[in-house]
Design a protein around this nucleic acid. Structure first.
Length: 237
DNA sequence: TCATTAAATTGTT
DNA sequence: AACAATTTAATGA
């Protein structure tokens, strides 16, 4: 393992394909699009590497181009609590960016990931100049509120199968994570880590969901067949 | 391009 | 936690 320069020292310009993978760029008027594109940066994060740490001043609004990130928090006792995974297309940190505060969570790459960053000043400039961008951010905040409320329910569910189903439904959210599509690239080990179950138990739950017809298990990923079922249906187990 | 090998992931106990 | 089976990625002729 050779040591590398910090993530923010390894940034580069986005390619055209990467810019295209950013959901809110298409909403901008030409002048806004140009300014945003000038500021956008891309960095490749290795597995386990931190994208941002709680307590550091917020300088960027982040998005996932490719890979899988984890949002977590460290308690005073040193325990790590995982809140959610962030798959491709997801943008996060707008709360702290809005208030110009410090990051409240740790964001860590679960696997090798490509991360986009927009400077906080540009984020504010877009808020001041683009109604479409404001609508995107508002929609984003609203959708995430729904996710966190759902996450509380998930935590109280006694059935592992249900917890896996609902957690998967959250990761397949097309509003928050438009880059995911039909197939979510996630290993059963990674999902187990996010949901807080053993890999064996997740494997069993996924098999049940596959037999039920709401997903299909693929090597290194999962294909959603019935998102509604993942969200609402009640399974045994 | 194909065959072989290593690595990663999944399925099972 | 350990192990076998399966799938993909890497290597080299």
């Amino acid at each position: 393992m050779r040591s590398r320069a910090p993530l923010y020292h390894r940034q580069r310009r986005p390619t055209e394909a990467e810019t295209h993978a950013i959901p809110w760029m298409a909403l901008l008027a030409p002048a806004e699009h140009e300014r945003a594109a000038q500021d956008l940066k891309i960095a490749d994060a290795d597995a386990g590497e931190f994208v941002c740490r709680a307590g550091r001043p917020a300088t960027y609004w982040f998005g996932v181009i490719d890979g899988l990130l984890k949002m977590s928090s460290d308690s005073a006792q040193g325990q790590t609590m995982t809140f959610t995974g962030i798959p491709p297309g997801g943008w996060f940190g707008e709360g702290t960016a809005l208030k110009r505060e410090s990051y409240r969570y740790n964001i860590q790459a679960l696997r090798k990931s490509r991360v986009a960053g927009l400077h906080v000043e540009t984020f504010h400039w877009l808020l001041d100049n683009s109604i479409a961008f404001n609508r995107f951010v508002m929609n984003q905040l609203n959708e995430r509120l729904g996710q966190f409320i759902a996450a509380r329910e998930i935590d109280r569910m006694p059935s592992p199968n249900l917890r896996v189903a609902r957690s998967l439904a959250a990761l397949f959210n097309p509003v928050l994570y438009p880059g995911v599509g039909e197939v979510l690239s996630i290993t059963q080990q990674e999902l187990a880590y996010l949901v807080g179950l053993s890999r064996q138990r997740v494997n069993e739950a996924l098999s049940a969901l596959a037999a039920e017809g709401s997903i299909r298990i693929e090597y290194g990923g999962l294909r959603v067949l019935d998102l509604g079922a993942l969200r609402t249906q009640v399974f045994a187990g």
